[in-house]
C-alpha cells in the first residue's frame, strides 16, 4: 500500500467542499440531494481510512452502518421530492413556500 492517510483525508476534504458548495448554491431539490450524498461519501471515506491506519475493524463496521442509514435517508428524501413535486409541479425549493415557518 503506497498511499498514505493524508491523501485519503485530502480527497475527503475536497468532496466535503464540493458538497457544501452544492448545498449553498443549488436551489433544485434533487441537486441538493446529490450534494448530501457526496458529503456522506466523504465522511465514509474518512472513517474507513482512519480505521485502516489504526488498524481497527470498527471503521469498516461504522461505514457499513452509515451506508445503510444513508439508503434509508435517500428513500425518504426521494419520496418527499415526489410529494412536493406533486403539490407544486416544481423542484425549486424557493417555491415550497408553505413549508416556511
Amino acid at each position: 500500500m503506497t498511499s498514505e492517510l493524508i491523501d485519503f483525508t485530502l480527497v475527503s476534504v475536497a468532496l466535503l467542499g464540493i458538497g457544501i458548495y452544492g448545498l449553498a448554491v443549488k436551489r433544485n431539490f434533487i441537486r441538493m440531494l446529490f450534494a448530501v450524498e457526496i458529503i456522506i461519501n466523504a465522511a465514509n471515506l474518512n472513517i474507513v481510512a482512519f480505521g485502516r491506519f489504526l488498524p481497527h475493524s470498527g471503521g469498516q463496521t461504522m461505514a457499513l452502518f452509515s451506508i445503510a442509514i444513508a439508503a434509508a435517508e435517500v428513500a425518504v428524501g426521494l419520496s418527499l421530492i415526489i410529494v412536493a413535486y406533486r403539490m407544486y409541479r416544481n423542484v425549486d425549493i424557493a417555491d415550497f413556500r408553505s413549508l416556511k415557518g
Binding site: F8, V48, Q60, A63
Partner: peptide
Amino acid sequence: GFFFLLDAPFV
C-alpha cells in the same frame, strides 16, 4: 475504488 485501495473489499 478508494475502499478497495484501503483493503476494505467488503465495504
